Computed example of a mutant assay.
Amino acid sequence: MANTDLMSALVISGVTFSIDYGQESSGQAGGQTRVKDLRSPLWRMKADCSTLTLDQLRRVRAIVGALGGSLGSFYAWDPAAQFPAADPDGAILGASNVLISGLGAGAKNLLLKGLPAGYVLTVGDMVSFDYGTSRALHQVVTPSVVANGSGVTPEFEIHPPRRQGAAVNNVVSLKRPSAEMRIVAGSLNLSADGMIGQAGFEAVQVI
Results as ranks from 00 to 15, higher is better:
residue 61 R to E: 14
residue 185 A to N: 07
residue 75 Y to A: 15
residue 127 V to H: 04
residue 168 V to L: 06
residue 19 I to D: 02
residue 75 Y to V: 10
residue 146 V to P: 00
residue 58 R to H: 10
residue 178 S to Q: 13
residue 72 G to W: 05
residue 28 Q to K: 14
residue 160 P to N: 02
residue 88 P to F: 08
residue 120 V to D: 09
residue 132 G to D: 06
residue 53 T to A: 07
residue 170 N to L: 01
residue 155 E to W: 01
residue 79 P to M: 01
residue 43 W to R: 05
residue 4 T to I: 09
residue 60 V to Q: 09
residue 84 P to Q: 13
residue 130 D to A: 14
residue 71 L to K: 10
residue 89 D to W: 09
residue 108 K to F: 09
residue 145 V to C: 01
residue 22 G to I: 07
residue 93 L to H: 07
residue 149 G to C: 07
residue 131 Y to Q: 03
residue 141 V to C: 00
residue 145 V to R: 11
residue 9 A to D: 04
residue 89 D to K: 10
residue 64 V to L: 14
residue 53 T to V: 04
residue 150 S to R: 13
residue 25 S to D: 05
residue 60 V to F: 00
residue 195 M to A: 12
residue 148 N to H: 06
residue 160 P to Q: 12
residue 112 L to D: 02
residue 158 I to Q: 04
residue 106 G to S: 15
residue 15 V to K: 10
residue 186 G to M: 00
residue 66 A to W: 02
residue 54 L to D: 01
residue 107 A to T: 14
residue 52 L to I: 01
residue 199 A to W: 00
residue 21 Y to P: 15
residue 112 L to R: 00
residue 48 D to C: 05
residue 68 G to D: 12
residue 71 L to H: 08
residue 70 S to N: 13
residue 200 G to P: 02
residue 110 L to D: 06
residue 46 K to R: 14
residue 82 Q to E: 14
residue 16 T to Q: 15
residue 145 V to P: 09
residue 155 E to N: 11
residue 27 G to A: 11
residue 10 L to F: 08
residue 147 A to P: 15
residue 10 L to P: 02
residue 10 L to S: 06
residue 153 T to V: 08
residue 8 S to V: 08
residue 61 R to I: 09
residue 133 T to M: 11
residue 176 R to F: 01
residue 52 L to T: 07
residue 169 N to A: 14
